[in-house]
């Protein structure tokens, strides 16, 4: 006997706001709920098993794979997605090259250093790099590599991503 789908109701705290989730199925991942129910498609799904990092979000200050969080169990947690980074890091916001949108310094560096190609891994990487630099403002090359070793990029071979992280570290050092 199949259970009906869609009888869960709960509220998640995402990017500083309480967001109601209606008619959900209990097995839905946080990734699915963010993307399909809350209109936040920034986190991406590419493996459904925590082996690519595309779905990385911050949960209570930790970078986690949102595909492996059962959404209904995230009630009461602080969740930050790529869409919320500018708001959550106002001091790091800069105006992107030739475009008036506000982005964070990490986002800016991914653009200027060539860390973006197809862009599918990018939101997860951006969240992971923010998380790294919050915890460790001056990481070694190996610390950078280890901290993003859970974020697969298939396009860049990572070289320009390392360059982007390095650029942010240098700018932040110079500004501090």
């Amino acid at each position: 006997m199949n259970d009906p789908i869609g009888n869960e109701m709960y509220s998640l705290h995402v990017n500083g706001q309480d967001r109601a989730v209606m008619d959900a199925w209990v097995g839905e991942s946080l990734l699915y709920v963010l993307r399909e129910r809350l209109g936040l498609p920034g986190a991406k799904g590419a493996c459904e098993q925590g082996e690519c990092g595309s779905c990385t979000v911050l949960m209570d200050g930790d970078a986690v794979c949102s595909c492996l969080v059962m959404a209904a169990t995230a009630v009461g947690s602080e969740i930050v997605t790529v869409e919320g980074l500018v708001e959550q890091n106002p001091t790091m916001a800069v105006t992107a090259h030739a475009i008036t949108s506000q982005v964070t310094d990490v986002q800016q560096a991914f653009i200027t250093e060539g860390g973006v190609q197809c862009g599918f891994c990018t939101p997860g990487l951006i969240v992971a790099v923010h998380h790294l630099l919050d915890k460790n403002p001056d990481p070694t090359e190996l610390e950078v590599k280890e901290s993003i070793s859970g974020n697969i990029c298939r396009c860049t071979g990572y070289g320009r991503i390392f360059a982007a992280v390095e650029a942010v570290v240098q700018v932040r050092k110079a500004n501090s």
């Binding site: 920034g42 982005v103 800016q108």
Partner: peptide
């Protein structure tokens, strides 16, 4: 020149619409 991607901002902010993002 090392011109920058015109879709760069959208891709780093999560605003870029991949085919899987359509609704």
């Amino acid at each position: 020149a090392s011109a920058l991607r015109p879709d760069g901002v959208a891709k780093v902010t999560g605003a870029f619409s991949f085919s899987s993002d359509m609704w």
